[in-house]
Amino acid sequence: MARRRRDDGQLLGATARVPQHVVHRSFAHETVVLNLKTGRYHGLNPTAGMMLAELETGARIGAIAAKLAELFERPPAEIEQDLAALCLDLLRRGLIELTGPDGRSLEAAESDDAD
């Protein structure tokens, strides 16, 4: 649990970037993310799709969570947790890259999708 809190703290100060080998397209009720390195498609529900669009702006993840909490009228802690979980999942699948507040890249704990 302590480990998870530390990861979330790091994450909230981090920024995300969609790497060149990843493209995404929005359908009516789903965003499809394509990892060109693996040839795999990944589906995101509309909320996760909106989160990915916000992550692409390059804002800090904590700031994005605050913005979305206001938009969805939900407690900030809840959105922070959801956004952090999404970021870790996307990172693990090689669909985003994360840069911490110190300028270092955050690595996925494990990857089941990246080459």
């Binding site: 493209v23 397209r25 359908f27 499809v32 394509l34 060109l36 040839g39 498609y41």
Partner: peptide, 9 residues
């Protein structure tokens, strides 16, 4: 892959 995704969209 990208062309297929685009035509599907």
């Amino acid at each position: 892959l990208v062309d297929h995704l685009d035509v599907c969209m």
